[in-house]
Amino acid sequence: MSTRDVTDATFEAEVLKNEKTIMVDFWAEWCGPCRAVSPILDAIAAEHPDKLEIVKLDVDANPETAMKYQITSIPAMKVFRGGEVVKTVIGAKPKPALEADLAEFLA
């Protein structure tokens, strides 16, 4: 199962007003490391269905949200809780390293 997409239009409803903890993967088609980390995020989401939902935002198609969160490097993964960013992870990392970064949200 692939993680679903959010957009500038749906960001508020799907991410900011989401009652659960949700992580947004800011990515772009031309970003090699984003393509590398994408299947790892899919796997983490699939292994923790009740803990952490993971969605993707294409920064090219959705510049408003990318600008609002001052994205200057991708992949950038931001965990939102109650509309606030509670964790940011930047850069493609192997699965064990990402799981360690996100441990508090996966337990």
Binding site: A28, W30, T72, S73, I74
Partner: peptide
């Protein structure tokens, strides 16, 4: 500041500048 303006990959991050 890595990822907040400091980068090692222009092809990845150049478009944000």
């Amino acid at each position: 500041l890595s990822g907040y303006g400091v980068s090692w990959c222009a092809t990845c991050d150049g478009a944000f500048f």
